[in-house]
Design a protein around this nucleic acid. Structure first.
Lengths: 231, 231
DNA sequence: GTCTGGACTTGACGCTTGTCAAGTGTCTTG
DNA sequence: CAAGACACTTGACAAGCGTCAAGTCCAGAC
């Protein structure tokens, strides 16, 4: 049962579609799938990469401690994502750790065989270019948020982006708020207050892990620039 | 200053070395080189990409305004860098603007021909993968800085990284401090204070645009975390 | 049922940092 | 030489946000 399910999931990934049957089969040779519980660590900041991780289900976060006391969540990824290829490609130590957030099925591809495939399978290189391009844009957006928007604006911006993916007005949070707070570059307390502010403004309504956008217009205003005085 | 000079510069780029004579010649077909003064805008946030920009000399910054009143500098790039390939690859609007910081010679490659070459020249795709991987790491380091380090720590961290590139102890700033401040995610005033603090701590000595590291140990203390240089 | 632990909220407080404003120095311009 | 422009510094001040601490709510254990 596990094998069937895993293979099906592998097939559904964007990577599989992009590189085709043969290359995917080659990548799978020597790879293993694992079902991991929350808090499992896939790889650790500062260590040399030995595997490439393909997320088949669940959610995984890139977490950085960087020598300081607390941790930052850089980004979280869901099914279909190929994790932290840069470290593998360059054979350099990871800059972040990979942590399972919700029970996740992970395909682990040996780094050496991934690098070899990258060199002699043009389709793989081409697919990786596209993936990296998309990931780059995620980070750029995030840096823009961090450098020129205040905490409540960042939340509003994030909500709009998450919403953009699905056309509904209800957003089911897939991660604890603590994780989202750190992803947004703020403390959990500040996230609480930012959420309260958006409710106050009539932009959203929150019930536990479900956020309903009741005023898309108000939400866009809050994301824009007018949050809490001080132009 | 004419064709010779430009061709020589093109040859010296990492890209040229990676993809070889033939592919580089193909990319150059239809491309034009331009010598641009400071404040010249290569491309603008929100517009569709029409060119890929290869920096041959000088320095170029990626700047974002993101709808808010002030601007943030995302990153600056020098000779050999290929700018904002992601937008071109994905045919999506730029997330940032490209602005010349110090007089720069730029090779402009038509986006369409770059995309075509990317599809049928494996060497190019492979080279782009490596470049994107290095750029990804720059952004990751930056996000870590922004999320878990205070302003003076970010400066110390940045100094150590800039220093890592060359083995000396003197750092000649290639950009006005105002630009560096925005790259570090702080106001020019805060940068001034951060510099003063590092001098106070006996870590550096500043004379105009030259920063001398007089206490590498003290500087590392101030950075307060591990620095993983290399690209 | 009560107890306990975890996720989240709320309040109080202080540090960091951005903003506004004035001051210094240098380079250019008339 | 004076006037202006510009880059940077310094000081005063308030806002934003993180931290500490308490409080609420809820699920699971017993």
């Amino acid at each position: 049962m596990a094998i069937n399910r895993t293979l099906a999931l592998v097939h559904e990934t964007e990577l599989a579609r992009a590189v085709g049957e043969r290359v995917m089969a080659r990548l799978m040779k020597g790879s293993v799938a694992q079902l991991l519980p929350p808090r499992a660590v896939l790889f650790e900041e500062g260590t040399e990469p030995e595997m490439v991780h393909l997320v088949l289900s669940g959610r995984v976060g890139l977490v950085a401690s960087g020598g300081t006391d607390h941790e930052a969540v850089i980004e979280t990824f869901g099914a279909g994502s190929l994790l932290v290829v840069p470290a593998v490609i360059l054979s350099l130590p990871y800059l972040v750790s990979g942590v399972v957030l919700t029970e996740a099925r992970i395909m682990m591809i040996p780094a050496a065989s991934f690098r070899r495939a990258l060199d002699d399978e043009p389709a793989l290189a081409r697919a990786v270019v596209d993936m990296q391009a998309r990931h780059w844009r995620l980070l750029i957006e995030q840096i823009k948020d961090l450098k020129l928007r205040a905490a409540p604006q960042r939340l509003a911006q994030w909500l709009l982006r998450e919403l953009g993916a699905g056309p509904g007005t209800v957003l089911q949070l897939g991660e604890p708020k603590r994780i989202i707070a750190r992803r947004l570059g703020m403390s959990p307390e500040s996230l609480s207050r930012a959420i309260a502010a958006l409710e106050e403004a009539g932009a959203i309504h929150v019930e536990g892990r479900a956020i309903t956008v009741v005023g898309r217009r108000a939400l866009e205003m809050a994301a824009g620039g007018m949050t809490n005085t001080r132009g």
